[in-house]
């Protein structure tokens, strides 16, 4: 009896959580009248031509172009993040060195540094270096372990890999770098996947940084082209087009989450990672 009540409650709650997304997909096929006259998400008719129009966007470029831009940011950024995160976490987790406590405290501090405090001076710095409106301000910080929560998550994971592995390899004549590459990285695979997934999702979601750093429409990532389209579609305009663009824009995130969710939902989120 009690269990049934719990299930009903959870299912209702789950429906509330998921319904807006179903509504979004449904509404992308609806006329303006239909969107605002019924709560039911399934459209009266399925006309995929709206997706063809949405793909054309409101600019001279197609959504394909903006996908390409987004991936041109995500791929190097994620690659850089994995390398710098693994090295930094390895240093903190496995070695003792001068000023370690100080550096660790500074590292913890950066995790709680509000991005909005540093983003304005960063903008001025990149502007002085003349690299605004390129992808450098969006990707290069990842080379420097800029995402503290990734390092934190990886340090926690390192603690779970027995130090005996390192010692055995060292006796066999491996140096510190060889131990990392041949012994530890294979053990770290799950957490590396998590770093990649979060780096992907967060970059897809990031809006403020590209808004500030990127100014030409040609170089926009997905988030900025969505904003531009939303701003330039007035009230009388067909709303389904911008909704269809939003659906297209969500597909990569949902796909990546779907592929990786089993791997990272259990356990690894202990590092306090949030969306």
């Amino acid at each position: 009896m009690k269990k049934t009540a719990v299930y009903i409650l959870l299912t209702l709650c789950g429906l509330v959580m998921i319904y807006p997304l179903l509504w979004l997909v449904g509404a992308s096929f609806k006329s303006n009248d239909e969107i605002f006259s019924t709560v039911w998400f399934i459209p009266k008719s399925l006309d995929f031509s709206v997706y063809k129009r949405a793909w054309q966007t409101v600019t001279d470029y197609t959504m394909g172009h903006y996908f390409f831009n987004t991936f041109a940011i995500i791929i190097p950024k994620t690659f850089f993040a994995v390398i710098s995160t693994v090295l930094t976490a390895y240093g903190f987790a496995r070695f003792d060195f001068p000023l370690k406590r100080l550096f660790y405290a500074l590292f913890m501090g950066t995790m709680f540094m509000p991005a909005i405090v540093t983003i304005m001076p960063m903008y001025l710095m990149w502007s002085r270096l003349g690299v605004l409106d390129t992808y450098i301000p969006l990707t290069i910080p990842a080379l420097f372990a800029a995402e503290g929560s990734f390092v934190f998550m990886m340090i926690q994971f390192f603690k779970g890999v027995p130090k005996e592995f390192d010692e055995a390899a060292r006796i066999d004549g491996c140096n510190s770098m060889q131990i990392l590459v041949h012994i530890l990285v294979p053990c770290l695979r799950p957490v590396i996947v998590s770093v990649c997934v979060f780096s992907f999702l967060w970059t897809m979601n990031d809006f403020l940084t590209p808004l500030i750093m990127i100014s030409s429409v040609e170089k926009y990532p997905l988030s900025l082209i969505l904003r531009l389209s939303a701003d330039s579609t007035g009230n009388g305009y067909e709303q389904c087009k911008i909704l269809a663009m939003s659906v297209i824009g969500l597909i990569p995130s949902i796909a990546v989450f779907g592929l990786a969710q089993k791997k990272f939902l259990s356990g690894i989120t202990a590092g306090g990672l949030s969306g």
Binding site: S84, G91, F97, P98, V117, L124, F144, A145, S176
Partner: peptide
């Protein structure tokens, strides 16, 4: 003793460039 220090170099450089510098210059 400096092996660990070398490994966390990305963090130290990043801290200087992307946290300390903007924080002070702000």
């Amino acid at each position: 003793n400096y092996t660990g220090l070398l490994l966390i170099m990305p963090f130290i450089a990043g801290f200087m460039l992307f946290t300390a510098y903007p924080f002070i210059s702000s």
